[in-house]
Design a protein around this nucleic acid. Sequence first.
DNA 1: CGTATGTTTGCAACATTGTTGCAGAATAAA
DNA 2: TTTATTCTGCAACAATGTTGCAAACATACG
Lengths: 137, 137
Amino acid sequence: MLQEEVSILLGQKNMSKTPCRVEVLRVLLESGSALSEPDIRSRLNGGFDRTTVYRTLRSFLDQDVIHSISLEGGTVMYAITHQKEKHAELFHSHFFCDDCSKVYCLTKPEFEPPVLPEGFKANGYDLLINGTCNNCS
Amino acid sequence: MLQEEVSILLGQKNMSKTPCRVEVLRVLLESGSALSEPDIRSRLNGGFDRTTVYRTLRSFLDQDVIHSISLEGGTVMYAITHQKEKHAELFHSHFFCDDCSKVYCLTKPEFEPPVLPEGFKANGYDLLINGTCNNCS
DNA sequence: CGTATGTTTGCAACATTGTTGCAGAATAAA
DNA sequence: TTTATTCTGCAACAATGTTGCAAACATACG
């Protein structure tokens, strides 16, 4: 159930269950994909202020409850962090549908990275794949 | 020589050699890495308006003379597009140094991408690797 | 040469995304 | 209840990017 999932997410990070936090998590969980702040705010029940939503997102980002995805052109989307995968901290892979503009978090984000030039050391990989999603093909 | 390279880049795309375009290309070529608009503008000789620089960047983006790289958090950087590589249109790989914040375009951007879920079709790959560059290690 | 046409530039204005300061409301703790 | 903490809304601000308009400049054509 949704309420439970929200409680678990907040409880794990010792975050209090405020109305705005609960709503933001509900919206993100229900959408199943990444959303921009305007997207999120327009779906919230309660009519919260822009500032409050941004502060909520900032807290979630700091606590790794959510993560941000930067699209071509600088648009930033926010999505729940599901850490089922082992290398979730190292590899982040997302899919952007050119057709419906939906953003999906790939659950198996690991891949064979390119060889770096001499002297370069990698700490993390952020991959953004664009194309057509299963809904649009 | 730099002047020549600028002329070639503009000539290939049938773009007129305006002062601002020449300056922006000079700055990007001299820096050798990706720069933000404020970075670029502060290095221009001539004191061009913010708007003029953005319009110049837009033209270059439309003509694929440059490309943009979106960093974590939504910062956008601009870099010359070197299409020496075959798969340059499909694979874009960049390296962000956590130490000096410099952004490098990787010249061999191909890699083994992750397997997509059923029904998803990829059109392009944008990889952003973060870590330590050769100057900072 | 002069005129018409097109492009570049600067200025002002605006939109969007995100942050910060401050004061009031709500919540939890004493 | 009183105190302390944290949330929230409002106003203001900063950064990035776009658009409209008019002046400047270059280009082409008669």
